[in-house]
Every structure is written in C-alpha cells, then in structure tokens.
Design a protein around this nucleic acid. Structure first.
Length: 626
RNA sequence: GGGCCCGUAGCUCAGCUUGGAUAGAGCAUCGGCCUUCUAAGCCGGGGGUCCCGGGUUCGAAUCCCGGCGGGCCCGCCA
C-alpha cells in the first residue's frame, strides 16, 4: 500500500548502500521529504566521522532511478531525506483507497479470532450519568475498532442486580411508600436513582429501623424468593431497559447481559475456589483480625503483597465481590466447566439480538476461544483488577489475555456542581459525582441540552426544515459532540465536565467533523464528471497534505492494534478534517477543469470514504447536510 | 506510611510507548476573509523556565534517578 510501499522503498535503497538496519521515519514536517533516515547519526561513532559527511556519502551513493515512488534523496544536517514522486504516489494512495472501499485501512488481522469486551456495567438502580458515558463510549469504540480489524467481537454488560444499592431502592418502594410509577415526563431509571434511591439512602442513614429492614431485604433478594426478590427482578428489568435506551442513543450495542444473581446460582465460584485451593493460592485464617476468612495469598506479588492478603470468603461464609469477580473472569477465559444459558432480552437498534442470563433460557454462547478479554472500568478499580489478574495467574491461566482497560473518572466543575445545588469548599476545583448523594449530570439531560443547542443552529441555517428534521439532526450533532469529547481525552486524564464548554460546537469537536463531511458531500453531489486518480501535474500542498493524511490510516490502525489507544484515532479524525477544510478553502474543485477537476474530485471522493470509516469507528453519526 | 497516575501557552489538552530538524492544536484575545463547492469554515498576530534538580546521549518535553505539587487506591462494601 501507499505509505508502506514508500517506506519499504526507502529502506531498500538504504540497504543497497550497505546499511543493514535502516532506521526510517515518516516526517512530521514534509518539507524535508516524506521519509527520512537518521542512519548517519547512528553510524557516526563507529565510523569516527561526522553525521553530516556520512549522510552526504549515503545520499550520493543512492540511485533512485529504479524506484517507483521515490524521486530524490538528499542529505541535510545529517539526515537522509527521501522525496516522493508525487504523480505516482498520489495515484497509489487513491487507488488503494478506492480498492479498499469501506474496508480501507483494515488489515483483517483479527479474522477468525474473538475478543470479549465488557463495558457499561452500571448498577441497575439509576440512570446513566456522564461518568458512565465515558465508559460506554470507550467500550463501544473499542468494539467498533476490533470489529473493523476483523475480530469477532462479543460485547458484554455486567449487571450487578444483587448489591446493597438494589436493597436501597426496594426499601424505598416497600417502606417509604413510593409509587411504582414515576411522575410524568420522568424515566423509570431516573426516578429510581434521583428520587427513590437518594431518599432511601438518606433515611436509612439516620433511622436504624430502616437500616435493619434493608438488611432483611438484602437477605430476601439473596434467597431468590419472596416479595422483595420479585420486586427487585421487576425493577432491574425496567431500569435496565431505560439504561439501554440511553446507551443506544449514544450509539452503543450489546450482545450479552450477564446478571450477577444468575452467575451465583451457576456455581462458578465453588469450582474456582476448589481450583484455588488445589493450587495452594488460598488459605483459611485460624486467628488474627481475619480469623474465619478464606484469603487469597498475595505474598508472591511484588506490589500487592505490601498491602496484605485479600479476603475472598468472609467469616460468615459469603463471598466478597472480588471472589465473584475472579470466578467470572475465569469463566471469561474459558476456564469454567459451567456455562450460562441465555434467553433473548431484546434487540439493538441494528437488529441484532441481546441475550440475558436465564435459568429458563436454552441459548448457549461459548466464550472459550477469546484471544483477549477487555474490561472497561475506571482507574479506581486498578488494584482489585490486578488482584483478579493475579488470581488467574495462580490458577495457571493465561492472565495476559485479561486486560483492565482503565480510564480516569469524570468529575464536575465547580460551576456545574453549584448549579446542581452543591456548595464546594473554598479551594475545591473539581467535585466528584456521587450517585448516593444525587450529585451528577445525567447523560440524557446533557444530550437533551446539546440537542436543543444544536437544533437552534440548524434552524437558523435551514428555516425551511420541519421540526422533526431539525430535531433529528440536532440529536446526531449532540451525540457527536458528547462521544467525541469523551473519547478525545487521553484515558489517564480526568475529564472535568463544564457544560458551557461541552456545548461549544466549533473547533476541535464532533460537530466540526460532521460539518466537514457534509461539505465534502456537497461537492460530490454537484459533480457529474469523471474521476481520475492521476494528477495532471505535481499536486499542490493542500492536496498533498490531505493525501498524506489519508495514506496514514492503515498505519494508524496498526498502531491501535498494538497500543489499544483510542485517542490517536480521535486526533486523526480531527487532523484529517482539518486538512480537508484547508483543501476546501484553497483548492477549487467544481470550478476547476479537465484533468485537474477529475483528480480533485477523486481526492474528495477518497476523503469521504476514509472519513466515513473514521467517523464510524468513533461512533460519530454521519450527516449528509448540516 | 505504601502503591499507581498526572504536571507542556491565560484555560483545556496533543506530542512521551519507539529520543532527532523552528514544541503543536482547540478555547480565549486582537486583526483579516462570505456576488465564487455550506463562514459550525479559513488565514494571520500576540502568548512557552515543556514543574524543579541531577544523569545518560552527538542530540532529552520524550529515557533513568531524586525532589515538589495535584489526583486516586490501600474494608470480612461493591
């Protein structure tokens, strides 16, 4: 392919003059040529000569006459710079894009291999807030990327339907007299989280009687029968449906919902526990502060050992969540003889089915073949995730497959926290969201605000559009703005949500990407003439810059394959859009004629192909008109 | 106390994995560009001890060591 061929040719030329390991790089500043080599610097010491002289010797010895894509070699300050033959290089790039079509840039490395990605995993007692949205967007983008690389991707969503947070909500309904129907205009998930849960937590904190009732409810849920259990089941299902609607709004999709309560009944833990015992990885504490507990022996771990062993079975005989996590993780790696059965829960907007664990169901979904098991969870879970991974290693499993895809949390700006009724401390710059205290910005709320803001802009530009069309477009803009904002930040940096900032629709934003795409389509729409991948002459700088950027996609995706970083994809989308906009301003297409027009149309066409791919990977909805 | 992460322009951040040519964007600010493919755009100006100090190297924002500042994690909760 284009860029790779250029690199290969440069390396080949360097070998012809005796450089065994030609280190070449794609230049950041193309005024030095497309490719350059620092071989002269590396040879300087052993040859006892200055790199400047060595570079000149190398350059003078290289004969480019046999090279298809390289037109010249020159030595500058010790660098050996290779320039491309742009007439041929342009054609190579464009032909590769047209040939690849919607698969351009995919190496297909994942063919026949499965990746499991678990994301979202929000407790089913509340509506999603912006912190959850970061998880959903990262997870879904990973899924899209792996799918594009040819992998068979299985998306899981873990539903903790038996934790104490559920008991809080049940307490609200059973003891505080809350109706099962939310007030008009409010979703059931919001109602449970914003009203019932927050109030129940508050009341139980100050009322020991209610706290005791909550313990009873917890036990009843665990017993898997009775009124609280039935009520819980119904609430989980209703909240989950609302939550999924929000996730779909963000463009995410799921294959499997794994309910924690079902997992417990399958006896996964018992099997794993026996294996841990057999491996000598756990022990029973006879005395000391943890007397009566079964603990995971962490003494062999260089870091974890410093903080003491981990309780897996409490002295009352119940498991800790980390024990359940270990069992679940072992299942994901295919190390369990037990397997869940599923029934259909619903359908994704794309028509694919979503399965949920069920005692009644008869569907089986084998997971054993996965080459990677990715868990999208925020950084606060780093230590527990490391413990799970270590336990897998002690079980003799291939723990390297188990990947905690961590990301920093989303917090509130001072201003937004104040808007939500919180009084920050004097020097406090960020405020962490809290479900228990009702301190958070909900995804739907933010998307609605964004949609409204975008719709206003759309209306101004298209006064003739129907309200329906305006809102539909506004919704896509809102999703683009939010998804892009959550994914363009590096995962190891906290995002401080500033609603004023996020409402911005210009600059380095999702809507900018959509606008750029719509602009490109306008040109193609008005063009009826032929395309040509051959430039009539040396292309102009804006044309070259755009071509260069498009040529980079295959390498970008290769880099993703090894780094798993999503951010560079977002950066690429922005710079590609930016190069297109410069091209758009400086290089007339429809007003050009003949071969020039045909070549430029080919560039625009190629751009829409490449850019569509990138937008789809990021989950930024494409807009034909904006 | 121990562990992990972050520190680059007024603000929000790229670049660091794999060291390389004048350190890049966006926002904000100041100034230009719409009878010509959508101005949600483009062009230009101002704005930097790349937290500090050592070290490695021909070459360090990037690698190593030591500080400083901020965040997170260290429950028989999940």
């Amino acid at each position: 392919m284009g860029l790779k061929r250029l690199i290969t040719e440069a390396e080949k030329l360097l070998r012809t003059v005796g450089i065994e390991e030609p280190s070449v790089q794609v230049n950041k500043d193309p005024s030095f040529g497309e490719i350059s080599s620092t071989a002269a610097f590396q040879l300087a010491k052993s040859l006892g000569k200055s790199p400047v002289i060595i570079a000149e010797e190398i350059a003078s010895k290289i004969d480019v006459s046999g090279s298809e894509l390289i037109s010249s070699v020159e030595a500058v300050n010790g660098y050996v710079n290779f320039r491309a033959n742009w007439v041929g290089y342009s054609r190579t790039i464009l032909e590769e894009i047209f040939m690849g079509g919607e698969r351009y840039g995919s190496s297909g490395v994942g063919a026949g291999r499965r990746v499991i990605i678990e994301h979202t995993s929000v407790n089913p007692n509340k509506a999603l807030h912006v912190g959850h949205a970061r998880n959903v967007c990262l997870g879904d983008t990973l899924a899209r990327l792996y799918k594009f690389l040819g992998y068979d991707v299985l998306v899981l969503n873990y539903i903790d339907d038996s934790g104490t947070q559920m008991a809080d909500v049940i307490l609200g309904f059973m003891e505080l007299g809350y109706s099962l129907e939310p007030p008009p205009g409010m979703g059931f998930d919001e109602y449970c989280g914003d009203v019932v849960y927050v109030e129940a937590v508050k009341r139980a904190e100050s009322d020991p009687e209610l706290a005791e009732k909550r313990r009873q409810i917890t036990r009843e849920i665990e017993s898997r029968s009775g009124k609280a259990f039935e009520l819980n089941r119904m609430i989980v299902s209703r909240v989950l449906k609302d939550q999924l609607r929000t996730c779909w709004r963000l463009g995410a999709r799921y294959d499997v919902l794994n309910m924690e309560s079902d997992i417990l009944t399958y006896g996964l833990w018992d099997e794993v526990f026996e294996k841990l015992k057999a491996a000598g990885a756990v022990y029973y504490a006879e005395s000391g502060p943890k007397a009566g507990c079964w603990l995971l022996d962490l003494s062999g771990h260089p870091v974890l050992s410093k903080e003491g062993d981990e309780v897996l079975i409490k002295s009352d005989g119940t498991t800790t969540y980390i024990a359940r996590d270990i069992a679940y993780a072992a299942w994901k790696l295919g190390a369990s003889s037990k397997d869940f059965s599923y029934e259909v829960f619903g359908e994704n907007p794309d028509g694919s089915r979503i399965y949920v664990t069920s005692g009644r169901g008869d569907v089986r979904i084998p997971v054993s073949s996965a080459v990677k098991v990715i868990n999208v969870i925020d950084v606060r879970q780093r230590r527990p995730q490391e413990i799970v991974k270590y336990a897998l290693k002690l079980l003799g499993l291939d723990a390297e497959k188990y990947i905690h895809y961590g990301y920093e949390v989303v917090a509130l700006s001072r201003k937004d926290a104040e808007r939500l009724g919180y009084s920050p401390e004097p020097g406090q710059r960020i405020i962490h969201m809290s479900g228990r205290r009702g301190l958070y910005i909900k995804v739907n709320q933010l998307l609605d605000m964004l949609r409204e803001r975008a719709a206003k802009e759309v209306r101004e530009r298209h006064p003739d559009w129907s309200d329906e069309k305006v809102l539909e477009t506004g919704e896509k803009i809102a999703v683009a703005a939010l998804r892009y904002a959550l994914v363009k930040q590096d995962t190891d940096k906290m995002i401080v949500v500033d609603t004023d900032e996020i409402m911005r629709l210009e600059g380095d934003t999702g809507p900018y990407l959509q606008y750029t795409y719509a602009r490109a389509l306008r040109i193609l729409e008005k063009a009826d003439s032929e395309l040509s991948t051959s430039p009539p002459a040396e292309p102009s700088e804006p044309e070259k810059n755009l071509l260069r950027r498009m040529a980079y996609l295959p390498i970008l995706l290769e880099e993703f394959h090894s780094s798993m970083l999503i951010k560079p994809i977002a950066d690429y989308a922005y710079t590609l859009a930016s190069e297109f906009n410069i091209f758009y301003e400086k290089v007339p297409v429809l007003r050009a004629e003949g071969g020039e027009r045909a070549f430029r149309l080919a560039i625009v066409k190629a751009f829409t192909i490449v850019f569509s791919i990138v937008l789809d990977l990021l989950g930024v909805p494409r807009l034909e008109v904006m």
